[in-house]
Simulated assay, not measured.
Amino acid sequence: MVNSRWTYDLNDNNFKIHGHIVFYILTLFSAFIILTFIFLFIKWACKYRRLSTPSTADADADAEAGGVSPCRSRGLDSVVIDKLPILLHRCSLDEEAQCSICLSAFQDQEKVKILPNCNHSYHPECVDKWLKTQSNCPLCRASLRVNSPVKV
Score class of each variant (00 low, 15 high):
19 G>H: 07
71 C>W: 05
32 F>D: 14
80 V>W: 08
103 L>N: 07
12 D>A: 14
27 T>K: 13
43 K>V: 15
97 A>I: 10
124 P>Y: 00
98 Q>E: 15
44 W>H: 05
120 H>S: 00
131 L>F: 05
7 T>P: 11
92 S>G: 02
58 D>N: 14
135 S>W: 11
121 S>V: 07
116 P>E: 06
152 V>R: 05
148 S>L: 05
60 D>P: 01
148 S>C: 07
77 D>M: 03
99 C>A: 12
55 S>Q: 13
44 W>S: 06
71 C>G: 07
41 F>G: 15
75 G>Q: 00
140 C>H: 00
8 Y>P: 03
78 S>W: 10
69 S>Y: 02
98 Q>R: 14
76 L>T: 04
115 L>S: 04
109 Q>C: 10
25 I>F: 00
110 E>F: 00
80 V>M: 07
43 K>Q: 15
69 S>K: 03
117 N>A: 15
122 Y>Q: 06
100 S>R: 09
3 N>L: 13
8 Y>N: 00
31 A>H: 15
102 C>K: 03
131 L>E: 07
12 D>P: 13
20 H>T: 15
35 L>H: 11
38 I>W: 06
34 I>S: 04
127 V>W: 03
24 Y>W: 11
61 A>R: 08
20 H>I: 15
73 S>F: 08
61 A>L: 05
139 L>D: 07
42 I>D: 08
20 H>M: 15
30 S>T: 14
48 Y>K: 05
70 P>S: 09
139 L>E: 09
58 D>G: 13
113 K>I: 12
76 L>Y: 04
140 C>A: 02
9 D>C: 12
7 T>L: 14
81 I>E: 01
63 A>H: 00
32 F>T: 15
35 L>Q: 12
145 R>H: 06
107 Q>W: 11
57 A>P: 00
110 E>I: 00
56 T>M: 07
121 S>E: 10
112 V>W: 02
122 Y>R: 04
41 F>W: 15
125 E>R: 11
145 R>F: 01
61 A>W: 03
44 W>A: 04
145 R>V: 08
129 K>L: 14
144 L>E: 12
76 L>V: 02
88 L>K: 11
112 V>M: 04
97 A>T: 11
92 S>T: 08
37 F>P: 08
100 S>W: 10
139 L>S: 09
23 F>W: 14
57 A>D: 06
77 D>L: 05
14 N>R: 04
135 S>K: 13
88 L>V: 07
13 N>M: 06
